[in-house]
Amino acid sequence: MTALRGAPALVLAVLVGLTGCSSEDSSAPETTPAGALVLEENAPADVAGSSVVATTFEDSGATLRISEDGSPSTPTEVSVGHEIRVADEEYRVEAIWSEGDSGEPGGQGGRVMLVPLP
């Protein structure tokens, strides 16, 4: 009987872990600031002439793998509000969310929004 009482909490913990983001960061922002870039999970994107791939979505953070000038990528852990430099440009992480996972190859739903800083 005691094991059954803990089962709902375990199921909830697993479901929260599977979303890839916390509940407060799990939906897309209502607006997109001018100049913002939205990175899709595991899809290389050109940011300031460098390749950036958003990976490893956990809680309210993600890992950005940044490769400049064809060099091996450098992992950078980010969360909302974090500022990063890519090449000679600086960006703020505006939002991190998940649009779900289709279960298909390339169907991961993690997103990171970067806003260029002046």
Results as ranks from 00 to 15, higher is better:
G103D: 07
G17V: 00
V93A: 02
L12A: 15
V86H: 05
Q108D: 04
A95T: 09
E40H: 15
M1W: 07
T56M: 12
R85L: 15
P72E: 09
D25F: 08
V14D: 11
P44Y: 01
P72R: 10
R65N: 15
T63Y: 07
R111A: 09
G49Y: 06
D101K: 05
G70H: 06
V14C: 09
T31R: 13
S50I: 01
P29I: 01
N42H: 13
S22T: 15
E58Y: 08
S102C: 11
T32V: 08
L37M: 10
T55M: 09
V93T: 06
P29N: 03
G110D: 05
E30D: 14
P8M: 02
D101M: 01
R5C: 11
G61I: 02
E58D: 14
D69M: 02
G20H: 07
A28V: 05
S60G: 11
P44S: 00
G70P: 03
I96T: 02
I84W: 08
A7L: 10
E83S: 06
A9I: 10
A7N: 08
R5H: 13
G20D: 12
Q108L: 04
S23W: 12
R65C: 13
V52E: 01
S67C: 10
E90G: 11
S26K: 10
A95L: 06
E24C: 10
P44M: 01
S67I: 09
I84V: 07
V16Q: 12
S73F: 06
N42S: 14
P72Q: 07
T74R: 05
V93Y: 02
E99H: 00
T76S: 10
N42V: 11
I66R: 00
G106M: 09
L18V: 15
E58K: 13
